[in-house]
Simulated assay, not measured.
Amino acid sequence: MDDTEALNRVSEDHGITAPNRPAADGPGPRRKALTVVAVLVAGWIFIMGMVVSYSEALANPTLNNATIAVAGNADAIVGLLQEDSIEVTVVADAAAAQAQVLDRDADAAIVIPAPGGGEVTTYVATGASRVLAAAAGTIGGQLAEQLGTTNAVVDLAPPSEHNPNGTLEFYLVIFLTLGASFGATIIGRVLGPIRTAAEFLTRAGVLIVLSTALAAGASFYATQLFDGITGEHGWAYFGALAFYCLAVSGAVTGIASLGGTVVAGVVSALFVLLGNSASGGPFGVHMLSDFFQVVRYIVPQTWGLELLRDIEYFDASGIGGPLVALSVWAVIGVVAALLGMFRHTLANRPGNARPAKHVSAVAIGDDAPDHDARRTPTHEAITAVGPGEHRELERTPAAV
């Protein structure tokens, strides 16, 4: 005789009626409708936010706060200082002007001869931003026209012939951001929050595998299918992409462990909503409005894109800033995960733990009073005491 049959016999012998349990029918129609409405509204806000963000940032790129190194004619330099859209850095000569561009201290450089002394020379880096390079060339051309001479544009960092518009780096960053951030969110949902040191190390290993896989695929595409894009810096390119993915996924994982999956999802959505636009895309950050030029310091996409361009076009000059910024995001993830672990430890200290629950129903004889029920998800016991008999039955909740 199984537990269910024994329970039924005891109940019949002593007049015990098992309490009715409400069926778990799930949320009612009204709640379902409200959930659908909430999802649709949130999705509408997100999509419209992307439309506005991308349109405002990238639809009409305009020169804004670009740094131009200038050498030569003092009178012409004074005229450039009046330009609101650029910041002028005066250098000694043409060599210093070129060094400013190659070291990424300036977005372009202009060497201005004395009146009648030759042509204007404009140094640009088309690989970093074709649009910004064209804008700098226009400024150099206007100066040459004022001086009655010509303007020679010299490209110090031309893009690969397989990537003439310099867009591949942007695509790699934005899609790896999606893979790293939402991948980390899904992994966190499956594995749960980080509660112990062992779980911290395990999660770190999982994120390393995720980041390595994403970076390997992207690097193979960039260096093999489009041979020549990264030149001799293929391994550096792979390392940069892996570090970027690890920083993003680590930050999202730590935030999820501390604040929950919903918070991590919101952070991932903000990366997509604002980060892709604030990175400047193929146009460069100095073609963005003031608002996005502030946001660019916060989001990781800016620094991932700058890191790739530093490696690809400038022989790794200026990688310090991007590496530090991405390291900050990685540290945020570690600190958030540790805080989540610490909070869990405090919540489970002796005296702070919640009391365990138990379910029992007791019936005594034919005059049994209403039973006292306290529920636990894993165990139930019903003890029936009648004339000359005592029996205890254990079963799972599904048997009631």
Rank of each mutant, 00 (worst) to 15 (best):
T62Q: 10
V267T: 07
M1F: 11
V267W: 00
I47M: 02
A106L: 12
I255M: 01
D290I: 07
M287S: 04
T212F: 14
E161Y: 12
A218H: 01
G141D: 04
W44S: 15
T177F: 11
I298T: 09
K32T: 12
L326W: 11
V209R: 01
T62V: 09
I86G: 11
G192C: 01
E392I: 06
V120C: 00
I332N: 04
I86Q: 08
S55G: 05
L147E: 06
G275Y: 02
L246S: 01
I187T: 07
G28T: 12
A240G: 07
G148D: 04
I255F: 08
V359E: 14
T396D: 11
L81Y: 10
A269E: 05
A247W: 00
I186Y: 01
V91P: 02
D227E: 14
L258W: 01
V36S: 10
D367E: 06
V173D: 01
F283T: 05
V331C: 06
A337L: 12
A336S: 13
P397V: 13
L207D: 12
F170P: 07
A325L: 03
V248Q: 02
H390I: 10
A128F: 11
V295I: 13
T378Q: 12
T378F: 04
L81H: 14
R349F: 04
E394K: 13
N163S: 01
Y244G: 00
F170A: 01
